[in-house]
Amino acid sequence: MTKTNNTCNTCISDLTRRDFLKVAGAVAGGLTATGALTNSALASSGGGDIPLEDQKAMLYDATYCVGCRECELACKEDNQLKEEDVDDLSGHTFTLIKLYQSEDGSEESFRKYQCMHCVEPACVISCPVGALEKTANGPVLYESLKCIGCRYCMQACPYGVPAYDWSEAYPLIAKCDLCYDRQDGTACALACSPGALISGTRGELLEIAKERIAANPGKYHEDRVFGEHDGGGTSFLILSGVAFENIGLPPLTEESIPEQGHTATKAVPYIFGGAAGLMALAYRATMSSEERAQIQEEYSKEEGETA
């Protein structure tokens, strides 16, 4: 599988050559400028980019889900995770079915929790050592050997996905990998008999979802698919009969988190460059001619002492 390092899609597309020259001019050799360079170089030479609609994805239709939890079992088996009784994703649980019930009991729905495989993942941009990576085919993968355990990914993920086995003295992150090494789909989707969970390409799944919405007006919340655009889009798409926030989905705008923080990251080289310039100016400007002479004198005095 060819992997591209599109950690920050906006960077690659935003940084036109003119932009890049500006940045590079601001700090010759500044950290971020070099980073942007390697990234855009990667993007142009890679050529292995798979269009979003052809990437691997899953669709979860909560209205079909009966809560049999066969998917949980299949995932445990496929990933050789130990059995445990938890009510949140954990170091040994990549996916979980939870039941939501409204207070008066009139409304209920299941929700499958797992990594959403965001199109522009917050976890990937956060990780200081690049242990999390958005692969060309869609899955967001974790390279355990790189991880230093800063837990920024846990903090940054808007869905609260990356988890630890806290009983370990030197733990590693655990999360769903969209069964990236399976050609036949995902283990959990294959185990789902009611057809609530299907795997396929993002394009075909979106089509199925939209057909269902069109065929059943009013059945689905807001008549839309969660994840088509939310938070910049996800590869795990959700159809729900109840309000998204009721099944614990965060209120995201269409802008991804990396995009939101982007302006700030982009400003860094300017800050560096600007600071250097200001420093030099201040150094010259606040020095009177007498002071200059004095310093000269001091230095020559020291020279005399050491000689």
Partner: peptide
């Protein structure tokens, strides 16, 4: 690992 694996987009890397 900070010296070997760089993610220049991460604020934590910058820090």
């Amino acid at each position: 690992h900070y010296f070997f694996y760089w993610n220049t987009h991460s604020p934590l890397f910058e820090v």
